[in-house]
C-alpha cells in the first residue's frame, strides 16, 4: 500500500484507491457486516464529494474522510436503533429485584467471581486476541454492541450518545454495563482461561 497521507490532497478520483480499504476496515470493525460497511464507504465518498469545497486543508485527506465516515456510522446506528425490536431494550426496573440478575446471587455477591487476568496487556501484542475481542463483540445484541462502539471506539460521552440515539441516560449506563459484563465474561472464557498456562 502507498502512504496516502504524504500527499494529503490527491483528489476525489484517487480516494477509492488510496483510502477505500482503510475506510472499509474502519467501518467493518464497527458494524461487522460487509455489505453495510461497503454502503458506508460509498455514502462517505458521496458526502465528501459534495462537501469538498468546504474542506479546509488542516487535516490530512484520510483524517477528513474518516471523520465523515464516523458521522455516517452514527447515522446508521440511529436508523437501525429505531428498527430493532423492543425486546433488546433493558427492562426499566434495572433488574434490581432480587433474583433478576444474571451475574449476581440474590445477596449481591458475584455468581462467578472475575478471575485475575495476570498481565493482560501482553495480549495486545497478539493479533489473535483482537479476533477474540471482535468475536465477543459480535455476540452482544446489536444495540449493546453499537453502544460499546460509540463509547469506546468513537470516544463519545454518555450525553452525546443519549442525544444521538435518543436514549435515556439510565438506558445508556445500564446497557454499557451489560455490554462490559458480557464482554468481560466472554474474554475470560474464550481467551484468558486458555491463556492461563502461558501466564
Amino acid at each position: 500500500m502507498k502512504s496516502p497521507d504524504k500527499h494529503s490532497s490527491s483528489g476525489p478520483d484517487r480516494w477509492l484507491d488510496e483510502h477505500g480499504d482503510y475506510l472499509f476496515r474502519f467501518a467493518l470493525t464497527r458494524v461487522r457486516n460487509e455489505s453495510t460497511a461497503e454502503d458506508l464507504v460509498q455514502e462517505t465518498l458521496l458526502a465528501a464529494l459534495s462537501a469538498l469545497h468546504q474542506r479546509s486543508g488542516q487535516s490530512s485527506e484520510r483524517t477528513w474522510l474518516t471523520g465523515i465516515l464516523k458521522h455516517k456510522i452514527v447515522d446508521h446506528f440511529r436508523r437501525s436503533w429505531r428498527e430493532q425490536p423492543l425486546e433488546d431494550d433493558p427492562p426499566t426496573g434495572l433488574a434490581d429485584e432480587p433474583g433478576m440478575d444474571e451475574f449476581f446471587a440474590e445477596d449481591g455477591h458475584w455468581d462467578h467471581k472475575p478471575a485475575s487476568w495476570g498481565n493482560p496487556f501482553r495480549s495486545l501484542e497478539q493479533s489473535q486476541f483482537f479476533d477474540v475481542l471482535q468475536n465477543c463483540m459480535q455476540r452482544l445484541s446489536p444495540k449493546l454492541a453499537q453502544l460499546f462502539v460509540l463509547k469506546e471506539l468513537h470516544d463519545m460521552s454518555n450525553e452525546e450518545i443519549c442525544k444521538e440515539l435518543g436514549v435515556s441516560p439510565t438506558n445508556v449506563w445500564v446497557m454499557l454495563y451489560r455490554a462490559r459484563m458480557n464482554l468481560r465474561q466472554c474474554l475470560e472464557s474464550k481467551w484468558f482461561e486458555n491463556d492461563r498456562e502461558a501466564l
Binding site: 493482560p120 475481542l133 474474554l187
Partner: peptide
C-alpha cells in the same frame, strides 16, 4: 482492572 483493560483493548 478488566474494565480498564477492555477500554484500552477496544481503542
Amino acid at each position: 482492572k478488566q474494565l480498564l483493560f477492555l477500554k484500552r483493548a477496544a481503542r
